[in-house]
């Protein structure tokens, strides 16, 4: 546990030294501010873009606070995921290729600790970024559009956070088993995309899919309640994380560190 904390703290420090602690939260805050702001300013934006043709009568419905937040979360799910995957794609392979992983693993350190400390470090950054992004979205929605429950905002964000944790475990797994950062990022993104698309297209077959966590968030925000099988999705998500990290450590161990 002591060495785990050491490695975890080292991850946090490394992310501070290469400015990840600045730019990734910035991306999420920006995404969080953008949606309420554009929704609020939509009439002016249309005017500035040349306005509507003379005589056209289009009623722009006033934006609904919970929908604005949902759209923000959707942006997190697209652009945010891209940022998370790309910024952590060489999380293990980078250290392995440079050889520094060998310097660490000749110490009496468990491979599983090494892998999980990396995942936990990245997860800490993602959690803070996501919460900052959601809070700024909540603040600007409250300010510009209308009342929004802070509690619902947090619940919705936490569901997305679990989905992000699954994605991050996927990235760590591929980064530990593949040589290059590119293939790891590509495979992670492809799998996440496939899982999301299939879950959307074949809802009857994919009731177990952890990608449904985002749908739970949507339902919670718009309808005020979760969909069916909520706990199954949570369980599958958590199981996936555990299985991915444990097998990443096992596979990492069985490959020579220096080729």
């Amino acid at each position: 546990m002591r060495t785990w904390m050491l490695m975890y703290r080292k991850e946090l420090l490394e992310m501070a030294r290469n400015y990840k602690w600045i730019w990734i939260p910035c991306v999420f805050v920006l995404l969080g501010v953008m949606q309420p702001l554009t929704s609020h300013l939509m009439p002016q934006i249309i005017d500035a873009a040349g306005g509507l043709p003379e005589g056209a009568v289009i009623e722009i419905p006033p934006p609904v606070p919970s929908v604005v937040l949902l759209e923000t979360l959707n942006n997190f799910g697209l652009i945010g995921v891209l940022v998370i995957v790309l910024s952590s794609m060489s999380i293990v392979s980078g250290e392995r290729n440079s050889g520094v992983a060998g310097m660490v693993l000749v110490r009496p350190v468990r491979f599983l600790s090494y892998i999980t400390a990396k995942w936990a470090g990245a997860m800490t950054l993602v959690t803070c970024s996501l919460l900052l992004g959601s809070l700024s979205a909540w603040y600007y929605t409250e300010l510009l559009i209308g009342d929004l429950s802070l509690l619902d905002t947090l619940y919705g964000s936490l569901l997305y956070l679990l989905w992000f944790a699954v994605i991050l475990a996927l990235v760590v797994f591929f980064s530990a088993t593949l040589k290059g950062a590119g293939p790891a990022a590509f495979l992670s993104l492809a799998l996440v995309l496939a899982l999301s698309l299939l879950t959307g297209m074949l809802p009857a077959w994919m009731t177990w899919s952890p990608a449904r966590l985002t749908a739970h968030a949507a339902s919670l925000l718009t309808e005020g309640q979760l969909l069916d099988l909520f706990w199954l999705n949570i369980l599958v998500g958590v199981t996936m994380i555990v299985v991915l990290l444990v097998s990443a450590a096992a596979l990492f161990r069985n490959r020579p560190l220096v080729d």
Partner: peptide
């Protein structure tokens, strides 16, 4: 055994930061 061994690989690599 790792506890009793000090090791320097051929290409020593370090955290450059």
């Amino acid at each position: 055994l790792r506890r009793y061994i000090g090791y320097l690989p051929q290409q020593g690599a370090y955290y450059n930061w």
